[in-house]
Amino acid sequence: MTTSPKDIPTLSEWYASNETPQTEDEPKYNHDEGLNRRVSIWRGDITKLQADLIVNAANSSLLGGGGVDGAIHRAAGPELLEECEGLGGAETGETKVTKGYELPSKYVAHTVGPIYSSRAVDKCAQQLKSCYQTSLDLCQSHGGGVIGFSSISTGVYGYPIKDATEIAIETTRKFLEKDQSVTRVIYVVFSKKDEEVYKSILPQFFPPPPSSESSNGNKHE
């Protein structure tokens, strides 16, 4: 059974439900209700998401592997592997697109995240940012619509989930401010723990409406 984006609450709907986590961190951006309607966090199976494009956390061969990568290949069927075999692999931070085949998604963006190293934090951050940026760019160039992201590099590649999530969300915020073709960004997670990390960080980059008590605002660009 597939899941429609219509069945996944937007940030606007989440904030309206009064489930917003309390955070002492000051928002890094101003509130924008239009942007909040274009972002969601969903704990579920990315292979069941009805999207225009889903993002696969691939390895450099692009030929499938474990975790989400393997699940996407199994769900898409053998034609996905056949197409990937003709792509010639990809470098870290690079993204290549295939058809979705038997998936409910039209396209799959295969992006190669960095293997985290505490001795190369800045390089890893730039590579991870490139994964998100190039995936969004490719969604735009393939007609836009709904994009579903897996949590890139946070599994066996060892990227700290909080740091990775901040990069993912800020890259998305900057992209959506300039683009109208991508109508929905859905961050797809498996675990409750990862879901809570996303929910704790999202209000910094996509703040809820200011309350009446703080309507004078202390947000900055």
Rank of each mutant, 00 (worst) to 15 (best):
C139Y: 00
T154C: 11
S4L: 15
V112M: 09
P104E: 03
L87R: 08
S135E: 07
E33Q: 15
I152E: 09
E79R: 15
F205E: 04
V156G: 06
D163Y: 03
L63P: 02
V55F: 06
I147W: 00
S17E: 06
K219F: 14
E196P: 00
A125G: 05
K48Q: 13
E79D: 14
A90H: 13
G64Y: 08
G70K: 05
Y157T: 05
N218L: 15
V55I: 10
G65S: 13
A90E: 09
I186Q: 05
P203N: 10
G143T: 11
G100W: 04
G93C: 07
P5N: 07
G66N: 12
I41G: 03
S130N: 13
I186V: 14
S40I: 11
V146I: 09
P207I: 02
E79H: 12
V121P: 00
G145W: 04
T47W: 01
T23G: 13
K28M: 14
L53S: 09
K193Q: 10
T111R: 11
H73A: 05
R43L: 06
A76Q: 08
S61N: 10
S105K: 02
K219E: 15
Q180C: 05
E82F: 13
L80C: 06
R119N: 15
K199W: 09
E170P: 01
P5R: 09
V121R: 02
D137L: 12
S117T: 03
V197R: 00
V112H: 01
E26R: 11
Y15P: 01
T98D: 02
E195S: 08
Y107H: 15
P114N: 12
D25C: 03
K129Y: 12
E196Q: 13
D194W: 01
A109W: 07
N18L: 13
T171S: 08
C131A: 04
S17R: 11
V112I: 06
L202C: 10
F206M: 07
K106N: 07
S211P: 07
H73D: 03
A125T: 10
V108P: 01
T20W: 08
S211I: 06
I161A: 14
K123V: 12
A168H: 04
Q140A: 15
S181I: 03
T47M: 04
V108G: 02
D52Y: 05
T23N: 11
H142K: 15
G143F: 12
H142N: 15
E166M: 07
G155S: 15
T154V: 13
P203E: 05
N30I: 08
S61I: 05
D194G: 01
E33L: 14
S4R: 15
G44S: 03
A71T: 01
A57D: 05
G145P: 03
G44R: 00
E82K: 15
A76E: 09
S150K: 02
D122G: 11
K28P: 02
E13F: 05
D7Q: 14
H110V: 12
N36P: 00
E196G: 01
K192P: 01
K219L: 14
V55P: 01
T154P: 06
Q126S: 15
I41P: 04
L35K: 01
S135H: 04
K99F: 03
P208H: 12
K96S: 05
L87S: 11
R119A: 12
P209D: 02
P203Q: 07
G64P: 07
N18T: 10
T3H: 08
A16V: 06
